[in-house]
Amino acid sequence: MENSISHTEHRDDTASKMGMWLFIFTELLLFGGLFIVYAVYRSIYPDDFHIAANQLNTFIGTINTVILLVSSMTVAMSVTALRTGNKSLTLKLLATTIFLAFLFLVNKYFEWGLKIEHHIYPGSELMLTLKRGELLFFGLYYFMTALHALHIIVGMIILLVIYFKIKSGRVTKDDNVLLENGGLYWHLVDLIWIFLFPLLYLIT
């Protein structure tokens, strides 16, 4: 440790990564709270949940799962590409990831649009006539997927920032912890979806 002053300048990648992981924990607990609510109401209204879940489009859900898994792989590969010094491949892989994230949101848009066309959205007249468990299921469906979509958007912005930082050479082969952390955040979005997908689409 040098004697000069500047306590902000020394770099500790493990610390940055640990910080990112701790942040991921808070996100997991945030969604954990929602999963608790889901589990409780599912245990109270099992039949209503089945009926309501039947109305979700499993096909779109599955497509979105595949999209997220592939994007997870591309972002993981981009770290490898950067560490082996292949900058142009890194950028391509990141661009692919961001594109896939966008595709996910487009799918989500159509899925939500379809539901809203059928007058199933929070606060609609039809919703209030549904059975209590169905109402709660759709409430949870919108709340959980909306919060998840918000994380996708945040993740896209983070990856976009990192993309330009790599392009301008501020994130490099030897100083790549930012990309790694961005990747970790993106995997978190994937992790949550891995649980959301069967709980919302597959319990019929």
């Binding site: 997870s72 792989m73 993981a76 990747g183 970790l184 995997h187 994937d190 992790l191 891995i194 649980f195």
Partner: peptide, 9 residues
Amino acid sequence: VIIVISYFM
């Protein structure tokens, strides 16, 4: 989830 955490992350 375990696979994603151990390999991708």
